[in-house]
């Protein structure tokens, strides 16, 4: 008898009792934008949806791409590449908008593709390199490329959103 994908997934899942006890780990929402592989704590991410029509906002910093409507809510859309000074994001058919929340402030960031939720061992998280650039202040740490895949820069999403908001308001 053929097993359904759901049954296979359940079989592959680790035993609930054993999880968390072995080694401390943290779940990150990982995505790709431009050449960057970024990860943000999964609890800061509310939802992911497809990029619809963006309405540009006047008198805003370049990293604010505009606003978009989602479920009756108007969300600002941020370009992390511009924000971090790593280039410029492009909005296409497959572009995802990841909704993040920092307290009452909610905003969406552009992602070319979503890598998924990753559980990363705390021991694998390395501190951000010293003397880094502007991006360094928002970094929680980095995961070196290794057995579990490519290297990922882990961001403090809440802080980043706050900073962005402040900068946008300052203007």
């Amino acid at each position: 008898m053929e097993t359904s994908p759901l049954q296979r997934a359940l079989k592959a899942a680790p035993d609930r009792s054993s999880v968390g006890q072995a080694r401390p780990e943290q779940e990150f929402f990982c995505f790709k934008v431009g050449e960057l592989r970024l990860g943000v704590p999964s609890e800061t991410v509310l939802e992911v949806f497809r990029a619809g029509r963006l309405t540009p906002l006047p008198r805003t910093p370049a990293f604010v791409m505009g606003v978009t409507g989602h479920r009756g809510q108007v969300l600002p859309v941020l370009d992390l590449l511009r924000f971090l000074g790593k280039g410029e994001a492009r909005v296409g058919e497959r572009t995802r908008l990841c909704v993040g929340a920092s307290g009452p402030y909610v905003a969406a960031v552009v992602a070319d593709s979503v890598l998924g939720l990753r559980r990363i061992l705390t021991s694998d998280i390395l501190p951000p390199p010293l003397g880094g650039d502007a991006a360094a202040e928002h970094l929680l740490g980095v995961v070196q490329p290794g057995t579990r895949g490519e290297g990922i820069a882990l961001l403090n999403f809440a802080k980043l959103l706050q900073t962005a908001r402040q900068r946008a308001v300052m203007r």
Binding site: A9, A12, L117
Partner: peptide
């Protein structure tokens, strides 16, 4: 979550 990941 795991099922959802599998679905994904």
């Amino acid at each position: 979550s795991i099922v959802a990941a599998e679905m994904r």
